[in-house]
């Protein structure tokens, strides 16, 4: 059965040379890094904040901060992980500002058991892609991930959407590996449970 693979260990990453050149003031090298990661950073920011204007601002700020702090980047981690970390911090800060009454941190939501125990055991038949058109599917996916607590949403986004490894996700979020694993499991199960309302095999009952 096919497993979902994350990245294999790499040799010297091509970013290393680009970062070195950028550190020496080569703007074209930095611009290439921006080209490579602007889409990813925007996507991460939008997943976390669920707001397009915020995501645009965060993408600009994240690259600007990275540019300013480039000297501090030691190369112990991948450049992309470092960049994602900056973007995540900016995104969480933005969320906190927006929701003054609610705390937003990576430490919240740990207690909630909601949705972490599977309840819906219906198969998904036919496959969701056959059941819904592209735009309707996109709407369902957006609505569903929006309902997750920010901490879970963030872990899911980095691990499953952006395909970071558990270790990279832990590094980007300042969490321990077990904490990432426990949040990821809950995030996946909650999403699965919510998606199941749309995708479960129907036994003649009405659509949700």
């Amino acid at each position: 059965m096919p497993a979902i693979q994350s990245q294999v260990a790499e040799e010297v990453h091509p970013d290393v040379a680009l970062v070195a050149r950028a550190k020496l003031g080569d703007t074209a090298a930095f611009e290439q890094l921006v080209r490579q990661y602007e889409r990813q950073i925007f996507r991460v920011a939008q997943h976390i904040t669920q707001n397009r204007e915020d995501a645009e601002d965060i993408t600009q700020d994240a690259f600007f901060k990275a540019y300013e702090k480039l000297e501090q980047f030691q190369g112990n981690s991948k450049f992309s992980t470092w960049l994602v970390r900056i973007a995540v911090n900016e995104s969480l800060m933005r969320l906190r500002k927006r929701k003054t009454s609610r705390t937003v941190s990576m430490d919240e939501d740990v207690q909630t058991e909601d949705g972490s125990i599977p309840r819906d055991f219906a198969e998904w038949r036919p496959n969701p892609e056959q059941l819904y058109g592209q735009s309707e599917l996109g709407e369902i996916l957006r609505k569903t991930i929006q309902g997750l607590p920010p901490g879970f949403r963030t872990v899911f986004t980095l691990r499953d959407v952006e395909n970071l490894s558990t270790e990279e996700t832990a590094e980007a979020l300042g969490l321990s590996v077990p904490a990432v694993k426990s949040r990821l499991l809950r995030a996946r199960l909650q999403l699965r449970e919510r998606l199941s309302r749309y995708f479960r095999k129907k036994n003649g009952e009405a659509k949700p």
Binding site: H47, E123, L141, R142, I145, L195
Partner: peptide, 16 residues
Amino acid sequence: DTTRKTISIYRENEVY
């Protein structure tokens, strides 16, 4: 099966 599909559907569809 459905968790695997949950992951792949988010990975393969550009949500935004």
